[in-house]
Design a protein around this nucleic acid. Structure first.
Lengths: 217, 217
DNA sequence: TAACAAATTTAGATATATCTAAATTTTATT
DNA sequence: AATAAAATTTAGATATATCTAAATTTGTTA
């Protein structure tokens, strides 16, 4: 297939390492990237030669400081572009990912920094994910999954875990978005479904949905 | 070196064919792209297989209708992005080219069309070059080179032929830009230099400069 | 028009990124 | 602890884009 760049690998390693502890395994990156494990091994060696990852045979990789920085620079661009597409170019939050995947590889520090200024230094992208600032620092506030929110406690939707179009469009249909007040009214023990208050309407959602919505209590 | 895409070749062929008549020669593209003639031949075959150019051995290429369309789509994106960079991201007109070279390859019709709307359907880019609209049609108004402007006839700068940073910064220093009123006051026959009125100041320029400035009489 | 020069193409080399399949190492299970 | 299963790496194959150098074609000039 197509040549996937160093940058895509670093981003993949960063994301996998965020959602699990310890070194990142060859197979997990292979799955994420859609490449064969042998190709991933080759790339691990290449990244290791550039001191972007620490790599020990059979033990997976972990990002070096330089590797983390490079990953964050790409994530910064990705999320700034997503913000731009939604705020100025009439994109819906479920449409931005594919285009941002391309835009994140554009190389120009000035472009990135001016885009950030133009958007007035946003701290979060349209999915609620934090945007690293110029110094690559990002504010992560305390957030929990909706299924962890105690019954009758009020919260606000601040993000989603699953970014797929399918899921985001589901939320659109239910009129749930970033900023929507959410509250669990009743938890059905039998099938783990939840009755919730979302804005002004009440509705029933499955546990799987609740596990993909972040709320700030 | 790096892999130059089909798109870069089509754009190069388009530009060369604009400034000369008949088929486009292998060598001229090799120079433009910075590749060896043998590589260009290979690409000509590939483009021919895709019906983007007509190619006859030893006779050079010419774009097919489909090839022209593809080239114009890229030029459209390039010039829209240049406009955006200058109008909203504080880029100077001599800084935009390199970044636009990257942005022009982003694939998303919606992105292009929304960008055009956001910019309020601009007809010309920061260098005065016409921007193809959604139907790939562009308005080219009558323009001549400054050295063709009769002495004492008034004109307005509407574009530049050379887009290099060097030349554009030269014009900046002389306070000449798109829209600047220009007039040839005197033509020095001995060395072909020109005394001109540019806005409110008079200055002397060489013939080489005058040959790279477009004016509308 | 013959012969040379320039342009172009072809053939084969190099470099890169990916893959398949086999070999090796680690992890899990009995 | 021995063995099976899973994960990982290695070795070699394939495909692509580029190059160099030689061969071919076109054009130019004596």
């Amino acid at each position: 297939m197509q040549t996937l760049s160093t940058e895509d690998y670093l981003k993949a390693i960063y994301h996998v390492s965020q959602s699990s502890s310890g070194a990142v395994a060859t197979t997990s990156i292979a799955k994420q990237i859609g490449a064969k494990p042998s190709s991933v091994t080759d790339m691990f060696k290449k990244l290791s030669d550039q001191n972007l990852v620490k790599y020990q045979k059979y033990q997976g990789v972990s990002l070096t400081n330089e590797g983390v920085k490079t990953a964050l620079r790409i994530i910064r661009k990705h999320r700034l572009w997503e913000s731009f597409l939604v705020s100025h170019l009439n994109f819906n939050w479920d449409e931005v990912h594919q285009v941002a995947e391309q835009l994140e590889h554009i190389q120009s520090e000035k472009l990135t920094n001016e885009l950030e200024r133009f958007l007035d230094y946003p701290t979060h992208d349209p999915h609620g994910d934090p945007i690293p600032n110029r110094a690559l620092f990002m504010k992560t506030y305390n957030k929990i999954l909706l299924n962890e929110l105690p019954v009758n406690k009020e919260g606000v939707c601040v993000g989603v875990k699953d970014n797929s179009s399918n899921f985001l469009r589901y939320l659109d249909r239910r009129q749930i978005g970033i900023g929507t007040p959410l509250q669990v009214l009743h938890r059905e023990d039998f099938d783990d479904s939840l009755h919730i208050q979302a804005g002004k309407s009440t509705l029933m959602i499955t546990i799987k949905i609740a596990e993909n919505i972040y709320v700030k209590p």
